[in-house]
Design a protein around this nucleic acid. Structure first.
Lengths: 241, 241
DNA sequence: CGGGTGCTTGAGCTGTATCAACGTCTGTGG
DNA sequence: CCACAGACGTTGATACAGCTCAAGCACCCG
């Protein structure tokens, strides 16, 4: 999957298909333009207030602390909105940065708001996306608050797999993951050194491994049990993996 | 604050006044009824899919873990929606429970969705509320992920003060807080024993205290510095406290 | 006045952080 | 083709924030 233009908004369409049968076509109406970013590049609006839709690549939303530490709030995958939370509540001090080469659509905020007035399904799609994003953040909050580092890691690896699967970018028990150990650590509230030890443990126990940008879930069932993972918050109905 | 009917939806009106000049009147159209709950009572929909708006009292949204531990995701105050996140993404495994005696309005989900079609301002108000709720959860995620227990606590006490202040339920540097130490601990990802020690520290350093259901911020400036608190994510513009 | 609920404190333990070093891969320029 | 630099991964030793277990205290209410 890559720079095939026909596929650019595919993830978005797939993700929101139950709300918006013709979502990609619809977005075109208030599209400001298609933007491309290199890896580890900050994503900023071209001017005025905008929202992005991820087409290709991974990004992260994070908070930079005064001491230089980062807390990654969420990873953004193809089909996800970027900057939706900050669209209405300003000054949230959250930075958006790509992980990989990225292609995104830049949407006009006012155009989007106006279109929502005419299209009930679009309104539901945006509300649903926002709710789902909030649910994902809440789930990570639960992880960091009440699960140990191993369970947290298992939970995140499963979540990413499910989310990629929902937009057709994951095989059964493995997927491409461009994150480095430091990224995972910063998302899970632990240090990169400890992240390394946790990954070693998961590898030794034959549960999961991250090798050469590929995550392999060697024992998804045990992982789900270990992390008490329930995909309902992602809008899942069944259990694909 | 209390059982004055005219004031019931006051907090909601105040909070959303920049979007909805006549919010309370508007909600009446798809109001299912007014519900009252005792303290520590689970809030469940009367039937069908509904959303609540808090009028009087405090509540919490939490996840119950398999081992009996709780992670409180957010406290819900007067003027806040209750169950908005779970409205569209089903089965999120989040329980809603009151802290105090509570009065809430129960709204019909479909009525709300329909009203949003006709009223752009209502759409913005709901989106804004959802965004703000998400921002609050994200902020707590940052706290738990990258701040120590003392800073986390300071941050939460400040946040609650600001949020209450926004709906006219907090004095300058103190407010009524019905939470017990265990509640705070469960929101901050620490144990109640440690919460106790943290509160003692804050008291000894003359920073803040929780005494007899009253939070007093003895040194708000130092607290804000300690927690690197910036109220922007709450939709603040200035600094009221 | 007894029991429950919440608060407080102590002692010891553990999961994770910190600090520091070394290994390994990859791309780059001489 | 080698040498080098830089980024990432790995490992060990030690420190400490916060957890667990346990006990006692203070208050409120029936």
């Amino acid at each position: 999957m890559g720079d095939d233009p026909a596929q650019l908004a595919n993830a978005f369409s797939v993700k929101l298909r139950k709300f918006l049968p013709n979502s990609a076509e619809l977005l075109t109406r208030f599209l400001r333009g298609q933007r491309t970013f290199g890896p580890r590049e900050e994503v900023v609006a071209g001017g005025g207030s905008t929202v992005f839709v991820m087409c290709v690549g991974w990004a992260s939303a994070y908070r930079l602390m005064a001491d230089g530490n980062r807390q990654i709030i969420d990873f953004r995958l193809p089909g996800d909105f970027l900057g939706l939370i900050g669209m209405l509540v300003g000054g949230t001090e959250v930075t958006l940065e790509t992980v990989t080469d990225t292609v995104a659509w830049e949407l006009d905020r006012n155009g989007l708001m106006a279109a929502m007035r005419d299209n009930q399904r679009l309104t539901e799609a945006v509300l649903w996306s926002l709710s789902r994003d909030a649910a994902i953040v809440a789930e990570r909050l639960v992880s960091i608050g009440r699960r140990d580092a191993v369970s947290r890691t298992a939970h995140l690896l499963l979540e990413l797999g499910y989310r990629l699967n929902q937009v057709g970018e994951a095989q059964m028990d493995s997927y491409h993951c461009p994150l480095i150990q430091k990224d995972l650590a910063e998302a899970l509230g632990i240090t990169n050194v400890h992240m390394n030890r946790v990954l070693r443990y998961l590898r030794q126990e034959d549960l999961a491994s991250l090798n050469g940008k590929t995550v392999t879930l060697h024992n998804p069932k045990a992982l789900r049990h270990l992390a008490a993972f329930d995909a309902a918050y992602l809008g899942e109905t069944g259990t694909p993996t």
